[in-house]
Design a protein around this nucleic acid. Structure first.
Lengths: 143, 143
DNA sequence: GTTTATTCTAGACAAGGTCTAAGCAACGCG
DNA sequence: CGCGTTGCTTAGACCTTGTCTAGAATAAAC
């Protein structure tokens, strides 16, 4: 039994399988990006992913990082989180949950959706359908 | 009884008073920006405010629009709404409420906070205090 | 193995927003 | 009144995030 799965829980083979399951062809660049995202549950901006790719053998360009993260989000492999008007975060935790956003240092912390109870959700405007319900609790350092 | 208050409900004198109440000195530029924002309950981006200022006698620069909207938000005259990673909206409705965000056309629609019932709000991470709870229901055109 | 479609790349570009240095206006004070 | 101090506004340079383009490289299909 493998007890050392904290940092690299997902082998390349498994990643390729996951990508194929979502109908994404597994190019070396996509595998690298998926390896970073799926390494653990985390929130990374495109820029942070780009930085982490620096140490990796397969070179990946900026355009590819943006395209790939967008593709992953579209296929449900990661989730886009909009809490900061200057950048998008990609969340590798795809289970239903919401976020604390620390406005002081820009960090995101998950909280499971069953720790909040939302009743009486208002109906979507006519002609539209609900895509997601996002709850963001903005917090700041206690003075 | 005045029944024609839809478009210009707030006179300059009233605006100046409102600004002073918040500890904001009333410069001509700030009064113009406040006049636009407080004209009615609405969601405007800095860019939209800048465009509307074009027809106004007092010239207002881009930097001042950004500074002023930031100041207004800080003093609670308007509220920042982050739903789109490319820009910030400023909401002149400061009563407690949440938003539908139409991802197709980028429009925001308010819904009062009492049409949603949130129970069991999780406690803020230690060392932090809750600043706001923002609920965004993302909707898209029904297919 | 050649053709065809997809993907990747560098770098130019766009949009939102911030920063800087200078100018200007109002205030306080002798 | 003259004058410094403080705060506000300005134009435009600048920065950052993200998109676009045209072509090169892969991969897939036959």
């Amino acid at each position: 039994m493998d007890t050392h799965r904290a940092k690299h829980p997902v082998t390349r083979d498994v990643i390729i399988e996951v990508l194929h399951d979502r109908g994404i062809s597994a190019t070396p660049q996509r595998v690298e990006i998926a390896a970073i995202m799926l390494e653990e549950k985390q929130h990374l901006s495109a820029d942070q992913v780009l930085t982490r790719l620096a140490g990796v053998e397969a070179a990946v360009s900026k355009a590819t990082v943006y395209n790939t993260l967008g593709l992953f989000a579209e296929r449900g492999l990661v989730r886009e989180v909009v809490v900061d008007s200057t950048k998008v975060f990609y969340d590798s935790n795809t289970t239903e949950h919401h976020h604390f956003y620390n406005v002081d240092d820009g960090t995101l912390i998950d909280f499971p959706s069953d720790t909040i109870v939302i009743d009486q959700l208002p109906a979507a405007p006519t002609g539209t359908q609900t895509e997601s319900v996002d709850v963001v609790i903005r917090v700041r350092k206690k003075p």
